[in-house]
Nucleic acid binder design. Structure first.
Lengths: 206, 206
DNA sequence: CTTGATTTTAATCAAATGATTAAAATACTT
DNA sequence: AAGTATTTTAATCATTTGATTAAAATCAAG
């Protein structure tokens, strides 16, 4: 089904051109607001090709979605599971990894979280994420340091401080609180600040 | 145009029934995935009534959207501007207000933030939110306490810790990390924890 | 080149969808 | 009760949209 040939204009196979266009349009507009014609036009290709290479809009979407969930999870899971880094190093890595990834793709979190809300993605329900998380090096190290802190609370706070700004970016820009440039500066600052703050949380007596 | 009469079955006017149904369906599915027929069915009414009372799907949506943005902003702005509460009290109030409002309406933040991302809402661009924020009692009190902390960073962290769990709820539930009941418990706990943590941030030397 | 497979195009379908219209039903006023 | 205005319904339009099809174009192998 997949073809290897680069004889055409753009050095990308038709299939890849469709994927590239689909990523762009789906991420900007979401599944329902995206028309297959939008993707075809963005790719500079005939509409029928979408259904030739992928069976349907839904199938194409699922490929993009799966990819994006992977991106989000793989920025986190390997760090949580690495036993050879300290808790502080893990926090540093999670923050800097996410900020790097998301500065290049601000729409990613809200896209994934919003689409995930409408429909269960079997792919994700299949993974025993809860088990993985609770047995992770991250949780072990946290328990050792502060057995009284619920790891879910701690991680949610960390991700909230890191990812939430990207989710809130539309409201931050539209209210004039930040612009594209100052947002980037802000996030670079947070890369240093969040670890400091998470460290403060670690020292807080409940 | 608006009618006052309650002689019909449900004690709600037709116009109100439509609004109630529209809130429910739009919030769950978003603008694009919502069909006017969904709303009519949810309201138990004829489709043509939507266009009779509201001019179009778009107009109906804008009314719901405006309402929801108001809900989100009014949970925050009055607290920020109240000069007779301390910074600590403001933090308490922001956290408890949002958690109360959002536990009753988990979809609200992601709905608003996602829709806001696609289209500029003139209503919000019109308000000089930036000015209001920078001159707020909250910012003044923060500056007095810690002139070295950027108020935007501080507020984003506060809202990130408070609101982000609701945005991430789909992924938390679908990965089995929480269920409906434990999510609620978690948020009740956060109501006490977040103020403690924000206090710790306030004491952190940069 | 010729043949056969693969890829692409143009045209079209069928269903879904936002909106309208004209008529029927209901409520309100006198 | 009659007459008028308001509300509701059923039927229908016109577009949009995801998908299909058959033919044309391109490519690959012998």
């Amino acid at each position: 089904m997949a073809k290897r040939k680069q004889s055409k204009s753009d050095s990308l196979s038709t299939e890849e051109k469709i994927k590239v266009a689909a990523r762009k349009v789906f991420l900007r507009k979401g599944f329902s607001a995206t028309r297959t014609r939008d993707i075809a036009e963005e790719a500079g290709l005939n509409l029928a090709l979408l259904n030739y290479y992928f069976r349907s809009k839904q199938k194409l979407f699922e490929e993009v979605m799966k990819e994006k969930i992977q991106t989000l999870l793989q920025t986190l899971i390997p760090v949580l599971n690495n036993p050879s880094t300290s808790l502080e190093e893990k926090i540093d890595l999670i923050v800097s990894n996410y900020i790097e990834v998301l500065l290049a793709n601000s729409d990613l979190p809200i896209f994934v979280l919003n689409e995930l809300r409408k429909e269960n993605i079997s792919f994700i329900s299949g993974i025993p994420v809860q088990k993985i998380f609770l047995q992770s090096s991250f949780v072990m190290q946290l328990k050792e340091r502060r057995s009284d802190i619920n790891p879910v609370h701690f991680l949610v706070s960390l991700l909230g401080m890191t990812i939430f700004p990207f989710v809130a970016k539309p409201i931050l820009t539209q209210t004039g609180i930040v612009n594209e440039k100052s947002f980037q500066t802000l996030m670079k600052e947070r890369e240093a600040l969040i670890p400091l703050w998470m460290n403060a949380l670690l020292k807080t007596k409940l």
